[in-house]
């Protein structure tokens, strides 16, 4: 597989290929249906405003799904996601594009596994990190 990243190819400090997501209210409704989370702050503007918000906001779990995609796109079909952590520090609203980014922070071997830790984040259009987190993955080796 041409796109597969191997543990040997990784260096600490390298950036993961970023992905841009353009969430819409329609996507939030779609996510509400698929996840069963129908809390109205995610699609009902009046309800959101009544809850001291400026308008509907993204589901936190949808934002972690975006970060999940960032990492699983990078590790390819032979990589394994072991840990995915993030905090919803800032709110993101539909209509505003967000970019998922990541940086390799540590490359190591443990219990015979080839592991990589990454710092991951979602940046809004102003470049603010609304959703900091980290991930740990297992990567395949070129040496089998």
């Amino acid at each position: 597989m041409a796109d597969q990243v191997y543990w040997e190819d990784v260096t600490e400090g390298m950036e993961l290929p970023s992905i841009v997501k353009e969430p819409t209210t329609r996507q939030l409704v779609q996510y509400a249906g698929a996840s069963g989370d129908f809390y109205e702050i995610h699609y009902d503007k009046d309800f959101a405003i009544g809850n001291q918000l400026d308008g509907p906001i993204l589901h936190g779990a949808l934002k972690s799904a975006f970060l999940g995609q960032l990492v699983t796109d990078w590790i390819g079909p032979l990589g394994t996601l072991k840990r995915l952590q993030c905090q919803y520090r800032g709110m993101d609203a539909p209509g505003n594009p967000i970019t998922a980014r990541g940086t390799v922070t540590r490359k190591y071997e443990e219990d015979g596994l080839r592991l990589v830790d990454c710092e991951i984040r979602l940046e809004n259009a102003e470049g603010q990190n609304t959703t900091p987190g980290y991930a740990t993955v297992i990567l395949p080796s070129r040496n089998g």
Binding site: M1, Q27, A65, G68, T72, L78
Partner: peptide
């Protein structure tokens, strides 16, 4: 449900939806 969920998060990864492709993954 997996298909609807993958569509909702906007993730086209074939590991979730394409059986032939997913079979070649780990």
């Amino acid at each position: 449900h997996i298909l609807r969920f993958a569509e909702a998060i906007g993730d086209p990864n074939p590991q979730y939806t394409d059986e032939a492709e997913a079979r070649r993954g780990r």
